[in-house]
């Protein structure tokens, strides 16, 4: 892991050792709808350092994408509102910045990759033009230089015959190639942080492997921070360093990748892991978490997971569990682990 000194010091007045690349503190996001206020994010804390991959794992409606959109500053406000929270990029709160300052960070320092590459690219412009646009707009390059840069980028994301294809339109590329173009676009200005929102969900397995490999290689090469948002436990196990599991707008468990898979400390995580079909369970019932993900307009009181939790007790229905540190039975704290369960001890040790 590289420390923060590598980056331009001007940009991080509060910087120095120990300041993470990005830190989200007590973030709340709500949406005002006709039926009421949907609380999509309810106090999320996470941080990511340069060269590190944080996987944010969750189902639809867990708030994982909304958090990322808030970080990126691309939430539509209204209907969204951020009543509380801080988003610190190198120690500076982006929510307090002016629109102009934020725009500078967005795209140049933080880039985003979306799930659907086809709809994220403009269909009537060539990919070369769209890639070159980054350089023309942000760096004032000439058209010719921008095109050379675009070809370079396409080479870097391993698009075959880049020079010949630079003038092609998005629909002329396959899904995997389009996602590479999206990655190239995100990389164009060599950002410090990439947020990838389900980058391979729309892709086939063999292509998904190519794209994830590429993303991991590039991350190492540029020493970027990566926030990977996904629902796929397999992808997370392949690339993540640490994981935040989200449920109903909260982080319910936080752990380094090995710890989470071997010894989950939250019943939801445990349920997710148990419901993966395993070889020795063939012919038996799969473990299934009962019930449905909660309606964000009516999040259950207490722990949001309580109606679905096999271990729920009375306290779970009344008291919201805080994300508390997880320790061994002898009391030694497990590094980087936390669980928002009243009964985390029973879950991890029992």
């Amino acid at each position: 892991m590289t420390t923060i000194e590598e980056v331009v010091p001007v940009e991080s007045p509060a910087g120095g050792d120990g300041v993470p690349l990005l830190e989200v503190r007590d973030l709340h996001v709500e949406f005002h709808t006709r039926e009421g206020v949907a609380k999509a994010v309810n106090g999320v804390n996470y941080s990511v350092n340069a060269g590190e991959t944080l996987a944010v794992l969750g189902e639809s409606g867990s708030g994982k994408s909304v958090t990322a959109q808030a970080v990126m500053g691309i939430l539509d406000m209204p209907p969204a509102r951020i009543p509380r929270g801080e988003i610190l990029f190198r120690g500076q709160d982006m929510l307090k910045m002016s629109g102009e300052e934020r725009r500078k960070i967005r795209g140049q320092r933080i880039a985003m990759i979306f799930q659907d590459a086809l709809s994220s690219l403009n269909p009537v412009l060539t990919v070369g033009y769209q890639l070159g646009e980054m350089f023309r707009v942000h760096q004032g390059m000439s058209k010719k230089d921008a095109k050379i840069k675009a070809i370079e980028l396409m080479d870097r994301v391993k698009i075959p015959a880049a020079a010949a294809r630079v003038n092609d339109y998005p629909h002329q590329f396959s899904g995997g190639m389009r996602q590479r173009i999206m990655i190239a676009m995100a990389l164009a200005l060599e950002p410090d942080l990439i947020i990838a929102d389900e980058p391979t969900t729309a892709l086939d397995v063999t292509v998904q492997a190519q794209v994830m490999d590429l993303l991991a290689d590039l991350q190492r090469e540029y020493n970027m921070g990566l926030i990977l948002i996904t629902h796929d436990l397999g992808v997370v196990a392949d690339v993540a360093d640490k994981i935040a599991v989200m449920y109903a707008g909260r982080i319910v468990e936080r752990a380094p990748v090995h710890g989470l898979y071997h010894r989950p400390a939250h019943p939801y995580t445990k349920g997710l892991l148990d419901s993966i079909p395993r070889l020795d369970q063939k012919g038996q019932e799969l473990y299934a978490i009962k019930g449905l993900p909660p309606n964000l307009l009516r999040i259950p009181t207490g722990c949001a997971f309580n109606p679905r939790c096999p271990q729920a007790q009375d306290i779970c229905r009344t008291e919201v569990p805080a994300l508390q540190p997880v320790a061994e039975q002898d009391g030694t704290e497990l590094d980087g682990r936390g669980s928002a369960c009243h009964f985390w001890k029973e879950t991890i040790h029992g």
């Binding site: 075959p160 190639m177 063999t206 492997a209 190519q210 490999d213 397999g234 196990a237 990748v257 892991l273």
Partner: peptide
């Protein structure tokens, strides 16, 4: 290739898994 490309939900597997990464598209 298809089987080896499937991400395995086990972080231990990633170091010593023999993955076949196909080139190109369908």
């Amino acid at each position: 290739a298809l089987l080896s490309a499937v991400p395995v939900p086990d972080p231990d597997a990633r170091e010593h898994r023999d993955r076949i990464i196909l080139t190109g598209d369908v």
